[in-house]
Nucleic acid binder design. Structure first.
Lengths: 208, 208
DNA sequence: GACTTTGTTTGACAGTTGTCAAGAAAACTC
DNA sequence: GAGTTTTCTTGACAACTGTCAAACAAAGTC
């Protein structure tokens, strides 16, 4: 089956078109989900906020969980490589820290709905088993992302990390989640507070 | 009006009875909420899992948010003093750390549903403004709780805290939330991992 | 250009939700 | 113990949900 599909470009582009529709649906769904949250977002609401009708959603996705799951996986591909450039180009610890904090506060401000949705979905995964594999996978990705940053930071300071990867991730994530929750109530101050707090913590995560 | 009520014990006990009913409703609702999460819990489900009918719920609470809000506030009174005894009786840093970690893993295991609910509600508060004041208040309470522990820990080690209160709370909370999320997937290992990670972190939160 | 496949619209379904109101039952008052 | 107030039950409502299927349009195939 896979071989025949590979032999026929028309078929492949057809599959591609399906995939593109799915992506379009997912992007639209993510917009709605980010605004309303998982609980208050219905398939009809997603369809209304898109150029499609609610029937189309069901044509491309088996059911609601299938759609959400696809959205989460799609989202994941966009977020975990956010700091890679900073990590690769930084030539000093300060440059790395500044770049990291800059990007972090930037995404906090510019992609607030996505972050809200992520923390919402992770909470939902505690109650909805079907979400767990996706959430777990993203959590691992984010953990690795933080670990790359911390490792590089240790390299540049001539030290080595003083906590393991899961711990480092939990600490940084705790600060970031606090900022995301706080951002809703106090958009002005929160980014600066996040920067300040991470600055307090970062040096403590490597051996003196 | 308040004075007449104070003068008439019958009336007072009547109000008390209302309050007791509310507490009973709230306790039952918290049980259901902890199992199903905010999104999947309906007033009828709450009523079904209690000895009351769904009409009673509406008799004692204006609407759903009113009930949830009451539940959250009721819950708060039970959780933020959890470590007070340990803080007061510990005579050495190790005793404090051991007692703190013991109580923390204990509540992680024994009150999992409540903690799941808390993180769920905090996520919901990002989308539902009406929940925000209650969530904010509890967050402050928990922050103060962590700060009391850290201050005492610093006292007993002859040091002083090296991060401010919001930072300390965010860090510890990040580790605890990671444990709560992880506990669903892996109940056996998680408590030990939480202990281990907090042990890594605690010394870093005070000046050397 | 007929025919098949693929994609889309529309409307319907069964179930659930929060909310409310009318009336029964119980508690209380005098 | 009649009358009043409080408490509770029951049934209803309108709105909304996920799901599906039948009719319709478009694209592709021979």
């Amino acid at each position: 089956m896979a071989s025949t599909a590979a032999e026929r470009p028309a078929r492949v582009s057809g599959i591609d078109k399906i995939e593109r529709r799915r992506v379009a649906l997912a992007e639209s769904a993510l917009k709605t989900l980010g605004e309303l949250g998982y609980a208050r977002t219905s398939l009809r609401e997603i369809a209304n906020n898109s150029e499609f009708t609610h029937g189309v959603v069901h044509y491309y996705f088996r059911d609601k969980i299938d759609l959400i799951s696809y959205c989460v996986r799609y989202y994941k591909t966009k977020c975990a490589r956010r700091y890679d450039e900073v990590v690769e180009t930084a030539t000093s610890a300060e440059e790395l820290a500044t770049g990291f904090l800059g990007k972090m506060t930037q995404t906090l401000v510019e992609e607030t709905p996505m972050h809200k949705l992520w923390y919402d979905l992770r909470a939902q995964s505690m109650f909805e088993e079907q979400l767990r594999p996706d959430v777990e996978e993203i959590d691992k990705l984010l953990e690795a992302m933080i670990w790359r940053i911390l490792s590089r930071y240790a390299d540049l300071t001539g030290t080595s990390p003083s906590v393991d990867a899961p711990t480092a991730y939990a600490l940084v994530d705790g600060l970031f989640e606090q900022a995301v929750v706080g951002y809703a109530a106090n958009p002005d101050r929160t980014p600066a507070l996040l920067t300040d707090r991470l600055m307090q913590v970062l040096p403590k995560l490597v051996t003196a």
